[in-house]
Simulated assay, not measured.
Amino acid sequence: MLKRWDGFTSFLDDVRICLTNNAAERALRGFALGRKSWLFAGSDRGADRAAFMATLIMTTKRNDVDVLASLADVLARIADTPVSRLEQLLPCNWAPKTLKAQSA
C-alpha cells in the first residue's frame, strides 16, 4: 500500500477523480440491461455496427449533446461532408447548422 500511496490519494488533489466507481457503473447499467436484446445481432457485421452505434450514442451523451438532434443532423449531413471535415461531426465538435447556413 505504501508503494502506491500517491495513486491512492490522487483523488484528494484532483476533484474530477471519484472516490468510488458508482458513477461509472450507473453509466454502464443501461448498456448492460440491453445485452440480451443484442445477443443475437444476426452476424459479426451486425454486432460491429451495434457496438459502433452504442459507442457513438454514449459519447454523444458524455459530451452533453442532444442525441436525437445530433444523430439526425449528422446522418443528414454526412454524405455531403468531405472526408477532411468529418471531424466536425464528432460529438465533441458537433454544432447544429444555423438557419442562415441551411437557407444558403
Rank of each mutant, 00 (worst) to 15 (best):
R77K: 10
W5A: 00
A54I: 08
E87R: 14
F31Q: 03
A24I: 04
N22K: 02
L19I: 00
R49Q: 13
T20H: 05
L33C: 10
S70Q: 12
V15P: 03
A95C: 08
A23V: 07
K36M: 11
T9D: 00
S43M: 06
R35G: 03
V74L: 07
A50M: 11
T98S: 11
A76M: 13
G46K: 08
D14C: 04
P96H: 05
K3W: 02
D13F: 02
R16H: 04
R35A: 11
N22T: 03
A72G: 06
E87N: 12
L86A: 09
L12E: 01
T59V: 07
A69H: 15
W5V: 00
V67S: 04
K61S: 05
T55S: 14
D6M: 02
M1H: 03
S70D: 05
R29T: 08
L90T: 06
A24L: 06
L71W: 09
W38Y: 08
W94M: 06
Q88Y: 12
M58Y: 15
L56A: 09
Q88T: 09
L71A: 11
K3G: 00
W38I: 13
R85S: 08
L71H: 07
L12F: 00
R16I: 04
A76Y: 09
L2P: 00
Q102D: 12
L33I: 12
L75I: 09
I78L: 10
L19M: 01
R77W: 13
A50L: 12
K3N: 02
R77M: 14
A76P: 01
T20A: 01
P91L: 14
L19Y: 00
A54F: 08
L12A: 01
K36S: 09
M53T: 15
F40A: 09
A23E: 04
K3M: 00
N22D: 02
N93Y: 10
R4H: 02
R35P: 03
L68I: 15
F40L: 07
T9S: 01
E87W: 15
K100G: 05
F11R: 00
A27P: 02
T98A: 04
W5H: 01
C18Q: 07
D66I: 08
R29M: 11
L19W: 00
N63Q: 13
N93T: 03
M1Q: 01
R16E: 04
P91R: 12
D14W: 04
A32T: 12
S10N: 03
L86G: 06
D44R: 15
T60L: 08
A95E: 11
L2E: 01
R26G: 02
L68Q: 14
P91W: 15
R29N: 10
R45C: 06
S70L: 10
F52N: 06
F52E: 12
A79V: 08
F52V: 04
G30W: 05
A50D: 13
F52S: 09
K97L: 15
D66A: 13
R26D: 02
T60W: 10
T98D: 03
G42Q: 07
G34H: 06
R16N: 03
T59D: 15
A51T: 12
L89Q: 05
F11N: 00
V83K: 14
Q88V: 10
S43G: 06
S84V: 13
V67P: 04
R45H: 11
A101L: 09
M53Q: 08
F40G: 11
A76R: 15
N21C: 05
C18W: 01
D66Y: 12
A32S: 09
A104C: 08
M1A: 01
